[in-house]
């Protein structure tokens, strides 16, 4: 098995063989999830805590389901509403939870790097479920699995990522993953939503969406993250939709068999036309949600295996 990581903090730390290992295992879980009896015992007896410092419904539900299907005891902590308001620091919250002996900790936090900081302080395996504008590795992995299943491969594809790239951790993790797998990457969006230094990242930049979509195999739309906007990045939603919203006319510029992706939740009529999102011949948005559970099961499984091996070595007194 080639998956050595102790935590899953970002795509940055993963080597291509580790990504492939994880996706291959996720395929097994896709099959399991389509059966009527969906239980496996990979996490039997283990405790999984979902710690979300930012509100989330979809990702948290996906992790919860993944943990439960693998037999773990799952607890959800909506930290955004509790101890943080009482002045407890991130590290204290982490130490408190750590003392309850969880085996797997899934964390989302509004600050970049916060999950890395937390991972240094606990002795369980940590999965980053999104930190600020930094990374969201399971999203990139589920996108990769979706692409691989739809396109039959995960390399030498032209992938266009459109929208609020500057504020998007989904875009960062996808750039890293798809870059590692040797794809041709394009970023499309207004200059105010492009990250500084994007020109040095080995990608092509477009402000004209039709131009950027030309011949693309994969069209990845991003949510216009209103809650992250300080204000003033774009003049109006309708102008944004006119220039950067995905509709049938713009999609016609892409390859005839191009797939359309969106990490959700969608703003219909802002970044994507509702009819495109619902077009079962082009949109793989529902597949992404399905792959999300499978990929998270695979990630939890692999980290649990490494954790068991590490504890086994420690119990045997082997120096590591």
């Amino acid at each position: 098995m080639t998956f050595r990581a102790r935590h899953l903090l970002g795509i940055d730390h993963l080597a291509p063989p580790e990504i492939v290992t994880l996706l291959d295992l996720a395929e097994d879980y896709v099959a399991l999830n389509r059966r009527t009896v969906k239980h496996a015992d990979a996490l039997e007896g283990m405790t999984l805590i979902n710690m979300f410092f930012e509100n989330s419904t979809r990702t948290q539900a996906s992790f919860e389901l993944a943990g439960k299907r693998l037999g773990a005891d799952v607890m959800n902590m909506a930290v955004a509403h509790s101890s943080v308001k009482k002045g407890e620091t991130l590290i204290d919250t982490a130490l408190t939870l750590n003392a309850m002996q969880p085996d797997l900790l899934v964390v989302r936090h509004p600050h970049s790097g916060a999950v890395n900081l937390l991972a240094e302080k606990v002795n369980c395996a940590v999965i980053n479920a999104g930190d600020g504008r930094h990374e969201h590795p399971t999203q990139a992995l589920l996108d990769a699995l979706t692409i691989r299943r739809a396109k039959g491969r995960l390399h030498r594809l032209t992938v266009a990522i459109c929208g609020d790239i500057a504020n998007s951790r989904v875009a960062r993790s996808n750039l890293l993953l798809l870059g590692k797998m040797e794809n041709r990457l394009r970023l499309i969006g207004p200059a105010t939503l492009m990250p500084a230094g994007a020109g040095e990242m080995g990608v092509e930049l477009f402000e004209d969406m039709r131009e950027g979509l030309k011949g693309a195999d994969v069209v990845m739309m991003l949510r216009l993250q209103k809650e992250r906007m300080d204000g003033g990045f774009i003049p109006s939603e309708r102008e944004y939709f006119h220039r950067f919203g995905l509709d049938a006319e713009k999609l016609a510029c892409a390859a005839p068999d191009a797939i359309v992706m969106h990490p959700g939740p969608m703003n219909r009529g802002v970044e994507i036309d509702g009819t495109i999102a619902d077009d079962i011949n082009r949109s793989v948005i529902q597949d992404q949600v399905e792959m999300g559970v499978a990929v998270r099961m695979a990630a939890l499984d692999l980290l649990a295996r490494n954790l068991r091996a590490e504890r086994g070595r420690a119990a045997a007194g082997v120096m590591v």
Partner: peptide
């Protein structure tokens, strides 16, 4: 400082 480093690490940055 805004640039490739801050963008990749997702740190709020200034030119």
């Amino acid at each position: 400082t805004s640039g490739k480093f801050a963008s990749i690490y997702g740190i709020p940055a200034v030119s």
